[in-house]
Simulated assay, not measured.
Amino acid sequence: MHWTSLATLAFVAPSNALIRFGCSQLVVDRLDPLVNPGMEPSPHLHQIIGGNSFNTSMYKEDHDLAKLSTCTSCQPSEDFSNYWTASLFFRARNGTYKRVPQKGNVGFEGQRGGMTVYYMQASLGDYQQKAKVKAFQPGFRMLIGSPTASTKPEADRYPQLTYTCLQDMNTRYPETKDFPSKPCPAGIMVNLRFPTCWNGVDLDSPDHISHMSYPANGTFESQGPCPASHPVRVAQVMYEVIFETKAFNKKTDWPAEGSQPFVWSFGDTTGFGNHGDYVFGWKDDSLQNILDEECYVQCKTMKTQSIEEMNKCSVSRKVNENVGDDDWIEAIPGQKTPMAQE
């Protein structure tokens, strides 16, 4: 998919397509309250952003993120949602690992790690805002992708989970379903776009996916209709996670036989297991008010905080282990044995 750059769109015409904001890192920890509620540690490491009420028991119905959080690592000061993905590691030729850090996107260079979040009201080219979307409701949660996917057909079940090999910070295409096969000068951007049709009833489902659906035909960008089983059109949530690979871009550090050296924290070396989690936590009707405003990136109804304030919001790691930030480690946290080397 070829996406026109946001910087270009901003000067083309007044647009009513989306909101875009940065979120600093809240914590990097081996917790997953959506898939593994109450489990400490969970099977693999995640990087989490958003409200500081994030914990292993937040799956409970009475866990109101907006009321229980006292700060958020996201730019909108009324967004206490939590967003997370797996962490990424670099595998050295000697079989040791180091966690690949994240960095802020264009316009958010001062944020501490984290990622960029979008809520799309319509496609990037829909300047007339022909379609309306409904905000998520308190208690809503979902995930997309599968950590067990190891082939392209399996990954293709989730058509909008991709990678971009950044030549510079404005690169947005081409996108691939697997990890880049060569060093990326400005980093690897992981793109996650969630389904946009809701069944209108369930805030969650046993697999955290089936209460949501892709359009019956076409795509969200082409304004394809929602299926009858999932008739409510919601905003498209999108993550852009930029992993800073500059310390790992020497080709002489890559495997001698030519394979790529990056590994997801759950052990995937293909990239096909790309997945992400989302738990809604906007205060009151703040998100719906923003979506109804028909605004672009910066909205009058969106209360914001400074990057300095975003960077101050964090929580302590619950699982005490070496995650490879400073030292090379023998195994990825949660992986019982070091991965076999070529």
Score class of each variant (00 low, 15 high):
R172M: 12
Y173S: 12
Y173P: 06
Y173K: 10
P174T: 04
E175Q: 14
T176A: 11
D178M: 12
F179I: 00
P180V: 08
P183R: 01
C184S: 03
P185W: 01
A186W: 04
M189S: 09
V190E: 14
L192P: 00
R193V: 01
F194E: 02
F194I: 02
P195H: 05
C197N: 07
W198P: 02
G200P: 00
D202R: 14
D202G: 07
L203P: 08
D204F: 03
D204R: 09
D204G: 09
D204N: 11
D204S: 15
S205E: 13
H211C: 08
H211R: 09
M212L: 15
M212N: 02
M212E: 04
S213L: 07
A216R: 11
N217T: 14
N217Q: 13
G218D: 02
T219P: 03
T219H: 08
F220L: 06
S222T: 15
S222A: 11
G224A: 04
G224R: 08
P225V: 08
P225N: 10
P225C: 09
H230D: 12
A235M: 05
Y239V: 00
Y239D: 01
E240H: 14
I242K: 03
E244G: 10
T245L: 06
A247R: 12
A247P: 00
W254A: 03
A256R: 13
E257A: 14
E257F: 12
E257G: 10
E257W: 13
S259H: 12
Q260M: 14
F262A: 05
V263L: 07
W264L: 15
W264T: 12
F266K: 06
F266Y: 15
F266W: 15
G267D: 10
D268R: 02
D268M: 02
T269M: 12
T270L: 08
G271A: 03
F272K: 03
N274E: 12
H275V: 01
F280S: 05
F280V: 04
G281Y: 02
W282H: 05
W282C: 06
L287F: 06
